[in-house]
């Protein structure tokens, strides 16, 4: 589904990713861990097409297509979803409109007609129940006045409504208490299917207690320096990153 080969990016003069390779197959959940400043969020932003992240080398293929030639909205319409670490507040644009507009954009790309109002509301209400969110959130501005946990739930709600092929979740667990973490994990797990993939960027093993990854990577200094199974996350929890960084140096 996703094939990244020797990806290099920079922001201004600063090199961020330095020849990153990653392959994610349909049905898999990958966790990307690593020390602060390793380039984890930059990888997510680069894949989503955020302005300012300049690709200086390498390639990214998503479902066989050259992802890097697509505009951000085209990447989203093609089925790529970025769950933000710090979702932005947009007062004046309400959640329900954003959800519907985003869903219709994705449906248009798939050659489907716009969703009708009843079908849409039924879908959204079902997903909100799963995320234990009050319906009042629908009429509020996007993330406006939401707590950190509410913003993260809202990200997952959007993901569930859009049903992307590939979800990149950037530190979705940060700022969540245990109960909220379980709710968010439930949401992510409900999306798992043989035809989808999830890439989790996280600092902590605890998220992986609730979302079992198939593959765990360590990203440091702009590259994947180690790949393993779920046991690698446990080892990192116990030993930190120093031993890997020393090996990679």
């Amino acid at each position: 589904m996703l094939e990244i080969h020797s990806l290099q990016t920079r922001i201004g003069d600063k090199e961020i990713l330095r020849g990153l390779n990653l392959t994610v197959k349909a049905g898999e959940v990958h966790a990307i861990m690593g020390p602060n400043g390793a380039g984890k969020s930059s990888l997510a932003y680069t894949l989503a097409g955020r302005p300012g992240y300049e690709v200086t080398g390498g390639s990214v293929r998503f479902e066989g297509a050259d992802l890097l030639t697509l505009a951000p909205e085209e990447r989203a319409q093609a089925g790529l979803f970025l769950g933000f670490q710090y979702p932005v507040e947009i007062p004046g644009v309400n959640n329900v409109y954003l959800l519907k507009a985003a869903l219709n954009a994705a449906r248009k790309q798939r050659g489907l007609p716009e969703v009708d109002a009843f079908e849409f509301l039924t879908l959204v209400r079902e997903k909100m129940r799963l995320m234990q969110m009050d319906e009042a959130f629908l009429s509020r501005g996007v993330n406006e006045g939401f707590s950190g946990g509410e913003k993260k739930r809202n990200e997952i709600l959007q993901m569930l409504v859009l049903e992307p092929k590939l979800a990149l979740l950037d530190e979705t667990d940060s700022g969540l208490d245990i109960d909220a973490l379980k709710v968010v994990a439930n949401g992510v797990n409900s999306l798992r299917s043989p035809s989808r993939a999830v890439v989790l960027v996280t600092h902590y093993q605890r998220l992986l207690d609730y979302i079992k990854p198939d593959v765990v990577h360590v990203l440091a200094r702009g590259r994947i320096i180690k790949t393993g199974g779920p046991e690698l996350a446990l080892e990192l929890e116990a030993r930190g990153y120093d031993w890997l960084l020393a090996d990679a140096a």
Binding site: E73, A76, F84, P87, P91, A105, G141
Partner: peptide
Amino acid sequence: YLLSRGLDPGTAESLLKWA
């Protein structure tokens, strides 16, 4: 943020002006 949800740039900009 709006583009990353698949909204086209024209709609996204109009929405932000409205906001």
